[in-house]
């Protein structure tokens, strides 16, 4: 049985009233969700908040999931992405009003490679960043990403192409 099927069975059980199924879904999907949000924002507390809010939303709207529309993973990632963008937009407004509330830049990482890959991904435009993270680290298809980000599949393809080119240009030199 594939992972997707297992997730869908668990979700069907949760929709039918098995409360413990949500815990199993949480254990299975909280890590990929956290990784996506963290790599996008590089903010640990925000990433935890988004994962928790996503599961609160899932509890409220559990009946709106339907396997015919897409996988549970895609459904959760879409919900998390929307929550994250809302939070980031709200933050930007606050920081514009009160710039002194802006937190310090994320701590530099221990190793040189890690620091470079973090910086490289963070410096990509937000739209390209989401596409490359979802494609490379989360193995989502371009059709799934298009559905999740609510953009045409062609746009996903071009953003991915630009993201790869930008990364290659940024990293250039000795590494690539």
């Amino acid at each position: 049985m594939s992972l997707r099927q297992t997730e869908e069975i668990e979700m069907a059980a949760y929709q039918a009233g098995d409360v413990e199924a949500l815990g199993r879904i949480y254990e299975q999907l909280k890590q990929p969700l956290y990784l996506f949000i963290y790599r996008y924002t590089r903010d640990e507390q925000l990433s935890i908040d988004v994962v928790q809010d996503t599961f609160i939303k899932i509890q409220q709207y559990k009946q709106s999931f339907s396997p015919e529309k897409g996988s549970l993973k895609n459904f959760l990632f879409q919900t998390a992405y929307r929550i994250m963008i809302d939070k980031l937009n709200r933050r930007k407004k606050w920081y514009r009003l009160m710039p002194f509330l802006k937190p310090e830049d994320p701590q530099p990482a221990n190793t040189e490679d890690k620091l470079t890959v973090q910086q490289a991904i963070s410096s990509l435009p937000e739209k390209q960043r989401a596409v490359i993270l979802l494609t490379y680290y989360h193995d989502l298809s371009q059709a799934e990403i298009a559905q999740m980000l609510e953009i045409p599949a062609g746009t996903v393809k071009s953003r991915l192409h630009h993201a790869i080119s930008s990364l290659k240009n940024m990293l250039g030199g000795d590494y690539l």
């Binding site: 470079t116 890959v117 973090q118 490379y136 990364l167 590494y175 690539l176």
Partner: peptide, 8 residues
């Protein structure tokens, strides 16, 4: 590029 991304 894959090697580089894998180091994250």
């Amino acid at each position: 590029l894959k090697t580089f991304l894998d180091s994250y």
